[in-house]
C-alpha cells in the first residue's frame, strides 16, 4: 500500500529529481559525497594553502600534535605531513579521473559493439575480454609498466585504463543486449537511424546508470591501484603520492609511526568515500546489483 502511494507521488517527476530524492535519504551516501568533495577541495587548494613541501632536515621526524605549524608532524626529510597529504590527494584524483575516462572509452566502446552487433563481433570481443580477465590485473599492469623506462602519471593512467575495462565492457554489453530489443530502439531502426546514432544517441543514455555506478567503484579501485603501484616503487617518481609516503615511512615505522599511518588513513577515506558514493548511486538509480 505504502509502495503504491510512493509510486504515485514520485510519478511525474523527472528521473533526476527522483534520483536526488532517494539519494538525500541515504546517509552513508551523503557521507561518501562529503568525503569526495573534501578530496576535491584538498586537491584544488593544495598549492594555495601550502607551499610545495620542501625538505627541512632540522625538522625531520617531528611527531604529530606537538608543533602546530606542522599539525600531523613531519616525515624523514622534515616535510609537513599535512601538506604531503593534500598534495597526495591531487595525485590520487588525477590518476583516478584519468583512469575512469580511459575505462569508460574502452569499456563502453567494446561492450556496446559486442552487445549491439552480436554474432561474430560479440564472439570475438567477448573472447578477448575473457582472455584479459585470465591474467590477474596487477600482473597485467606490471607487464604494461615494464614497457616504459620513465613511468610518469600518464603511463600509470594508461596502464590502469587499458587493463581494467573488462568488467565495464560486460555490463555495457548486457545493457545493450536488453535495450536493443526495446520498442523505442526498434522504432528508430525502422525510421532508418544509423547504427552509430542508435548506439550512442539512443541506447547509451539509457544504459548510463549502471555504467556510472561501475565507474564510481572503479574510481575507488584506481586510487587503490595507484597507491599499490607507488608502494611497489612503480609510481611516478616526480609526484607526491600517498602510497609512496607509506613506503618511505615503512622503514621507520617502529619509531615514527605517523609517517606511514596518516597517508594510509587518507587512502582508506578516499576509497571509502567513492565506495559509499557508488553504493548510494546504485540504490538511488534503482539499478539491479552491479559491481
Amino acid at each position: 500500500m505504502e509502495e503504491d502511494m510512493e509510486k504515485k507521488i514520485i510519478k511525474g517527476r523527472s528521473y533526476l529529481r527522483r534520483f536526488l530524492r532517494r539519494f538525500r535519504r541515504n546517509y552513508l551516501g551523503i557521507f561518501g559525497a562529503i568525503i569526495v568533495f573534501s578530496l576535491i577541495f584538498m586537491a584544488v587548494s593544495a598549492s594555495t594553502l601550502f607551499p610545495y613541501p620542501k625538505p627541512r632536515l632540522e625538522m625531520r621526524y617531528t611527531p604529530p600534535f606537538k608543533d602546530w605549524s606542522v599539525p600531523l608532524g613531519t616525515d624523514n626529510l622534515g616535510r609537513d605531513m599535512l601538506a604531503l597529504i593534500f598534495y597526495g590527494a591531487r595525485t590520487s584524483l588525477k590518476v583516478g579521473l584519468g583512469s575512469i575516462v580511459l575505462l569508460f572509452l574502452f569499456g563502453v566502446l567494446i561492450g556496446s559493439l559486442a552487445g549491439y552487433f552480436g554474432k561474430w563481433v560479440d564472439e570475438i570481443l567477448m573472447r578477448f575480454t575473457d582472455i584479459m580477465l585470465t591474467i590477474p590485473t596487477l600482473f597485467l599492469i606490471i607487464v604494461f609498466l615494464s614497457m616504459f623506462e620513465v613511468r610518469g602519471t600518464n603511463v600509470i593512467i594508461f596502464a590502469i585504463g587499458v587493463t581494467g575495462w573488462p568488467g565495464l565492457a560486460r555490463i555495457t554489453r548486457s545493457q545493450f543486449l536488453s535495450l536493443k530489443k526495446t520498442p523505442y530502439v526498434e522504432a528508430v531502426q525502422v525510421m532508418g537511424g544509423s547504427s552509430l546514432r542508435i548506439m550512442f544517441r539512443h541506447i547509451l543514455p539509457n544504459a548510463l546508470p549502471p555504467i556510472i555506478v561501475v565507474l564510481t567503484f572503479q574510481m575507488a579501485g584506481a586510487i587503490l591501484t595507484e597507491a599499490g603501484l607507488s608502494f611497489l616503487g612503480l609510481g611516478d617518481p616526480t609526484l607526491i603520492s600517498w602510497g609512496k609516503i607509506i613506503t618511505q615511512g615503512r622503514v621507520s615505522v617502529a619509531t615514527a609511526w605517523w609517517e606511514s599511518t596518516f597517508p594510509g588513513i587518507a587512502i582508506l577515506f578516499a576509497v571509502l568515500g567513492f565506495n559509499l558514493l557508488g553504493d548510494a548511486i546504485r540504490d538511488s538509480f534503482e539499478v539491479e546489483k552491479v559491481g
Binding site: 575507488a220 587503490l224 597507491a227 599499490g228 608502494f231 602510497g243 607509506i246 615503512r250 615505522v253 617502529a254 609511526w257 606511514s260 599511518t261 597517508p263 594510509g264 587512502i267 582508506l268 577515506f269 576509497v271 571509502l272 565506495n275 559509499l276
Partner: peptide, 21 residues
C-alpha cells in the same frame, strides 16, 4: 566496508608494527 577500502599493504605494515615490533 573497511576491508574493501583499505590498502592491503598499509594494513600489513600496521600489523607488523603491532604484532612484530
Amino acid at each position: 566496508l573497511l576491508g574493501v577500502s583499505m590498502p592491503s599493504f598499509w594494513l600489513g605494515i600496521l600489523l607488523i608494527l603491532l604484532f612484530a615490533v
